[in-house]
Nucleic acid binder design. Structure first.
Lengths: 354, 354
DNA sequence: GTCAGCACTCAGTACAATGGAGTGCCAACG
DNA sequence: CGTTGGCACTCCATTGTACTGAGTGCTGAC
């Protein structure tokens, strides 16, 4: 329409890297308001926002500029503005401080981790519940990868005449198991011999490092069992085991969208563990803690944002906590919650490892 | 309104236990049609249904009767009929035969169980995926309860100076673990002693049967470790461990309803493992394989139906497979799929146990 | 008992009219 | 020159009305 009016701009150059103070304040107010109400925000509602002490007419001018620059959008001509993905991006990059969790949430977190105990899996599962409760988002927790953890103990337990269970304990407390089909009947004693022989060979190694060949023990039957056991270890070490993912609060996705079709497609993604784990890893790898809209490549999640925090155990990233919500999620809250829970989870796991 | 017209009925006696052949056929057709289309069914559409070779006027009369008797309902005056919960109940009780799965599904099931292997947990998880794929419903699989399974092996593995892991293998192949805080440093050898001592005492018993007291071994330090181990065993045996539940295909719930609020409340229920497990057990205990609408007591699932099948292993019920869908779910398909998968799962688990 | 015919009911749709929230533009002001 | 009040304009959402059509209940005839 009035494309010729652009003359007042110094050219169609790429968007300025920063916004002046008032425009920032306006963008901030629009995002904050929209996160709360999910309704387009009009200029009238912003007159008394902090840092914005101008009339609605001036705000309108700034909003129009922000729209031209891609930070805001208008559902239709006579509606208020809503943030674009770029607007959210500016918001999280420049307008959200480190921020702390609200006192109630902090109390919840403290209480949770003070009473954390038991199996690691159930703890991770409950952590996902905690995170989703704190944020009204869907929470994702990826457990420590056992790839680099060394074998602490190997045991063979007979379950049936030709069936045994290989039980491997890793240094981080993880227990892996694998059922083994034995070619012939093996008594308990010989299983013990084979287990000792295996243990001598693999304890102290990480699963992927294990050499599949192993000298004979003298007894041919024992050797057969050892070979089967090694095969089982190899299987455990292969990627097939994969990282374990815990998803909590997926019902919050149904509250976040009013189109049931959107809910369905998001839930479908959440059911694909591999996709979710890859998504979280990708975002972390790119050095981000937030991926908004199409920034992550998963198309069905285009109307979602992901918040990711690594979990450090003994100076090493060993897991991930994540949050999934609509792009209009409460970023300050989500970031604070993910950071706090990620840190405390790391502490907790470190202590357990000592 | 015309309550006085009831004179043509032999009295307001309780609904007849059976329906004449044509009314059955009409009810059958209404349910079948409605399951497929989710639209109220009018008399016109039923004229060429099997077993119904009468005019629409006659069908209307019968439908009015079925409505009076509570099998059908009308969303509004000039709409077709939809089945009530009572209508569905009659349908599954009298109109659904044993029925078989469609060939494609049978093929899927065969293929799945032919290649079933690996850890029991991951197999149960994948079984829930299979069931939900087969039926377009949300599937629930409750793993074998380990309550009655006997201890096959007990091991203590040192993870840190004052930290050990108790690893218990049960006769059904389940592995349970529990981290133990030791009061003082214990070396590997003494852990082994304690484990042997524990094993001698508890191998062959089920976890809940274990006596918490145990004679001394001679060495006071070993006794301390044994005591801590016994405490861990007691903890494992307590109900806290609970049955493990695997839910698959919860995204199908979003496709089943068009009210996002319904989806949310159903998903919220699915997140509460205890509620779901209790629900399945209750339905089974009442000797049902289907619970429709309000028949199970869980209010937020009033617009859902549950199909349940026990899993038999060696002549004993040890688990459950279930399906959750809208009350207008495809009962014949769901029943067939649950039955087949439940049976094959039981076989599979029996074989593994040998 | 079954059926064709008929009057009736009522959700759903289409369409116009209205109200109001919000905008862009402009002239005036400090 | 940035800011502001004023104003015309746009367009969604709501309301009201009329119409359509699927489906019903009833009745009199076979």
């Amino acid at each position: 329409m009035n494309a010729t009016d652009d003359s007042r701009h110094p050219g169609p150059g790429p968007e300025p890297l920063d916004l002046d103070a008032r425009k920032s304040a306006i963008l901030n107010a629009v995002v904050t308001e929209y996160i709360g109400s999910a309704q387009p925000v009009g200029s009238q509602h912003l007159t008394d926002a902090p840092g914005v002490s101008v009339s609605s007419a001036t705000i309108r001018a700034d909003m129009a500029a922000l729209e031209r620059e891609g930070y805001l959008a208008q559902p239709h001509t006579s509606a208020g503005r809503i943030p674009t993905d770029k607007g959210y991006r500016f918001f999280v990059d420049h307008l959200v401080g480190p921020g702390a969790l609200d006192p109630v949430g902090r109390q919840q977190v403290r209480q949770f981790f003070d009473h954390a105990h038991g199996e690691i899996e159930s703890m991770l599962e409950r952590t996902s519940g905690l995170l989703s409760d704190l944020t009204d988002c869907t929470a994702m927790v990826v457990g420590p990868s056992h790839e680099s953890s060394t074998v602490r103990s190997v045991q063979l337990v007979g379950l049936g005449p030709r069936l045994a269970l290989l039980v491997v304990v890793l240094a981080d407390g993880a227990v892996q198991k694998q059922s083994l089909d034995l070619p012939e009947d093996v008594d308990e004693e010989r299983l013990g011999d084979a287990a000792r022989h295996l243990a001598a060979h693999v304890v102290g190694l990480a699963l992927p490092q294990i050499d599949t060949r192993l000298g004979t023990s003298g007894d041919p039957m024992t050797d057969v069992v050892v070979a089967v056991g090694l095969e089982g270890l190899r299987h455990l070490g292969s990627a097939e085991a994969g990282d374990q993912l815990f998803v909590g609060g997926s019902s919050h996705m149904a509250a976040a969208f009013d189109a049931v079709e959107t809910v369905r497609s998001v839930l479908t993604i959440l059911e694909q563990q591999l996709v979710v784990v890859t998504l979280l890893r990708d975002v972390l790898d790119r050095g981000l803690s937030v991926a908004i809209g199409t920034e992550h490549g998963v198309e069905p999640l285009a109307s979602c944002a992901v918040v990711v925090m690594p979990v450090w155990v003994d100076g090493e990233i060993t897991g991930t906590v994540g949050l999934l919500g609509p792009t209009r999620m409460n970023y300050p809250q989500a970031l604070a919650a993910a950071r706090v829970v990620g840190n405390r989870l790391g502490q907790s796991l470190s202590e357990a490892r000592r």
